[in-house]
């Protein structure tokens, strides 16, 4: 049923693919975290533009990531923007999770007491300085665990990149499978990799959370 020799044979190949998966996760999350903050800030600063952002966020969150990946990969070239599969895929993942992250930041902003804004006005701080020096430092730390949870969620969605043939873990496992007709080992190993990484990161986030609470 389970062939250990075969397992050790494919392990290095999968390990290389795992690096690709981690890269995609890291880049995707950088986009998600930054763009999410931008979206949430626009909502906060410009209520009118905020309506557009709200609709956009709702639109992104209501449609499948896979379709969004296809959209960026196939539709953008029609507009003259040709992206390679990895870039298009990572961008799609990043934008998808930016929508989720923007909601997290928004909750963070809303949790800063009104009095902080009022005190800043009383001190005659400019809106930009109030945002940068007073609101952000209070809004961000409490939302770090929630962002962390989206980091794990994003990580678990990177196998979707296999749909546009990015050679990450899932695609590599599938390739091994179709070449050798043995799927048990590669697909199970991919599952184990994701399980271990998720459990470890979930543990780290829990620690972070209790550290934030004690602070």
């Amino acid at each position: 049923m389970w062939d250990w020799t075969f397992t050790f044979e494919i392990l290095p190949v999968l390990a290389r693919a795992a690096i690709m998966t981690v890269e995609a996760t890291a880049l995707g999350f950088v986009i998600a975290a930054t763009l999410g903050l931008v979206l949430a800030s626009i909502r906060l600063a410009f209520p009118v533009a905020g309506v557009v952002v709200t609709v956009l966020v709702e639109l992104i969150r209501s449609t499948p990531l896979l379709i969004q990946i296809f959209f960026l990969y196939f539709v953008l070239p029609k507009a003259g923007i040709v992206l390679d599969a990895f870039t298009a895929g990572v961008a799609a993942i990043g934008i998808h999770y930016a929508a989720y992250c923007s909601e997290v930041y928004r909750a963070g902003f809303e949790n800063v007491p009104r009095g902080q804004w009022e005190a800043s006005i009383a001190l005659n701080l400019s809106p930009w300085n109030t945002f940068k020096d007073i609101i952000l430092p209070q809004a961000l730390p409490p939302v770090v665990p929630a962002l962390g949870n989206y980091l794990i969620a994003l990580f678990k969605e990177t196998p979707l990149l296999s749909a546009i043939a990015v050679l990450e873990l899932m695609q590599t496992a599938k390739n091994i499978g179709s070449e050798t007709f043995r799927y048990t080992e590669p697909v199970t190993l991919v599952g184990v990799f994701f399980l271990v990484m998720s459990l470890v990161s979930a543990g780290i986030i829990r620690m972070l959370e209790s550290w934030l609470q004690r602070r």
């Binding site: 678990k156 196998p159 799927y183 697909v187």
Partner: peptide
């Protein structure tokens, strides 16, 4: 709960689709 939350949906789908027949 941990296995299905800890691995991704696509991995689970492929596992059931590709691996189960081998059993």
């Amino acid at each position: 709960i941990e296995i299905f939350r800890g691995t991704s949906a696509l991995v689970q789908l492929f596992w059931l689709y590709f691996v189960l027949p081998q059993f």
